[in-house]
Design a protein around this nucleic acid. Sequence first.
DNA 1: GTGAAAGCGCTAACAC
DNA 2: GTGTTAGCGCTTTCAC
Lengths: 345, 345
Amino acid sequence: MSLAPSPSKRSRRGSGAVTLHEVAQRAGVAPITASRALNSPERVSPEVLQRVTEAVQSLGYVPNRLAGGLASTRSRLVAALVPTMAGPVFLQTVQSLTQALAEQGYQLMLGQTGYSDPQTGEDRMLEALIGRRPDGIVLTGTLHSAQARQRLQAAAIPVVETWDLSERPIDMLVGFSHEGVGRAVADFFVAKGFRQWAMVAGDDPRSLRRQQAFAEAAVAAGLPPVVTVSVPAPTHLKSGRQALRQLLQHQPDVDAVFCSSDLLALGVLTEARAQGRAVPDRLAVMGFGDLDFAADLEPALSTVQIDGAAMGRQAAHFIISRVEGRVPPCSVVDIGFRLVERAST
Amino acid sequence: MSLAPSPSKRSRRGSGAVTLHEVAQRAGVAPITASRALNSPERVSPEVLQRVTEAVQSLGYVPNRLAGGLASTRSRLVAALVPTMAGPVFLQTVQSLTQALAEQGYQLMLGQTGYSDPQTGEDRMLEALIGRRPDGIVLTGTLHSAQARQRLQAAAIPVVETWDLSERPIDMLVGFSHEGVGRAVADFFVAKGFRQWAMVAGDDPRSLRRQQAFAEAAVAAGLPPVVTVSVPAPTHLKSGRQALRQLLQHQPDVDAVFCSSDLLALGVLTEARAQGRAVPDRLAVMGFGDLDFAADLEPALSTVQIDGAAMGRQAAHFIISRVEGRVPPCSVVDIGFRLVERAST
DNA sequence: GTGAAAGCGCTAACAC
DNA sequence: GTGTTAGCGCTTTCAC
């Protein structure tokens, strides 16, 4: 006659973890009430809230977000797709994204596409991530595959593109103009009176756009064509050294180099010293990114400052706004950039 | 009279995404058969497999892993907790972890605890992650809070600690001996004939252990006590420069410095040059980590090579083995380290 | 303010 | 090899 939970024909007791059900029982309320006490405490009487809180404490209850996400179709997961984390470029963005999301109870899932073989890696990665039903996806850089773009639209998941200013964004966007950077550096070089420019550039799409704008500006200014050395992304100090060696062989009279990353610039600086070429007197060097070491190099590196952390925060903000039903007033933000002049130019 | 899906009393159509149900219908089989076709194709007849595959294709079905995880109590999510990603130290580990997991259909969730205020951040972060019911948790460094350790044990989630060789591991472990590193560098310094040693060390626990072993070895070798400059973690180039400045003021006759990160070493190298102190002739410099720039600095940096990527892969391997029911033959791996002698010593 | 019922989309368990 | 049934643990909808 006792109502002990009879081990009925089919037992399938799940993980063994404490469930909301048990919390509710202990608190003497219905499960749904316990749920409300946790998710919208203001809609529940103070006593009930107290009893539920106690039950949670004493049982060590940790809500199962898989179940919650399934029931509510809000997973509170956000996916980020980065080409790579090898270069420290996207690092800050990922970092601030992780943090900003965590503060709001969201978690970040990380996916890397790799610079090489973008089509396959990207598509597969994206499908894997969509399977988790994230509440949003943050892209660093643009999506290469048209199929991927389509899939994203179909899934109707809020998307934030970062690190670029695409003309036809998939959805939301926070970035800056790479062409603008190229032109700004060119203007700066003109103002400085540099005549023979060079560029050491990674072969990723964004870097190429900076490079092109930079080269065009040189022509427009009536200067000799820019000598360019292309290096594989992600960029390393080593590539910078090699690039400068190559450069000086072909064009010894170069007087200013724009590097597509601070790491490359460090390489150029290093090689210049090894070759006894004084910076900035006989060679001006400009970086990109303003990584934390740039200001403290010898000579201190002039560079283009990009606020990666701000991009991460803004992306988090965009997605959370959307999830909570708010329509962000503007879903395209140009966070700009800033030229930082230091000793190397 | 048509049988259009009548909006019955309770409609709650979820996300609107294609479900396994629809795939099954289209393929003319039961849902569970469709499920099997996707998860264990070898247990299903070729024709059925074909029909299901086609249905998946034409409908653009992406399995809902939230639901799958809930039903099977296997989320295929792995959580990683890092103190920070600011220093590039853990970067490689996170990177290779992400990749190794993705190859097996697992995704990584990232959580940062921050070096400061470890107790609160860590506990909260951990609870948030456990709520996702990950199949495993990877820790970089040790857990500070006892409550956190307890919570982990209670949750019965496979845990891999990395970057350290704790005496009483929570579960699985892949790391190396920081004391061993300190002693090895000391042995090397002795062999080189350096007499007055110094150390520039971050204030994180692992760095402190390297420092202590290093200092003790100096005493054991009958050398003057090691002069130590402590800098806040995460370490930066700037701290390295400041530290050397400080060091040379108090102890101008120092002839060898061991830095607790390559970034610090770069700072020391930079400051040494700024002060006209020749490396390695008047000051030997040793780094830690063998980051990708170390080999190409001028002078090339001697350092302690740590295979962060291998740790990530091993951690992924450990967790997946455990999830699939295999008991790894040995759940503690010392991946060691390697002294790399270059020009800076 | 609280609760009962009915799913969310999938898979484990048991048939046949 | 395939299907039926009954959940996984939570939240939505509707009712009081």
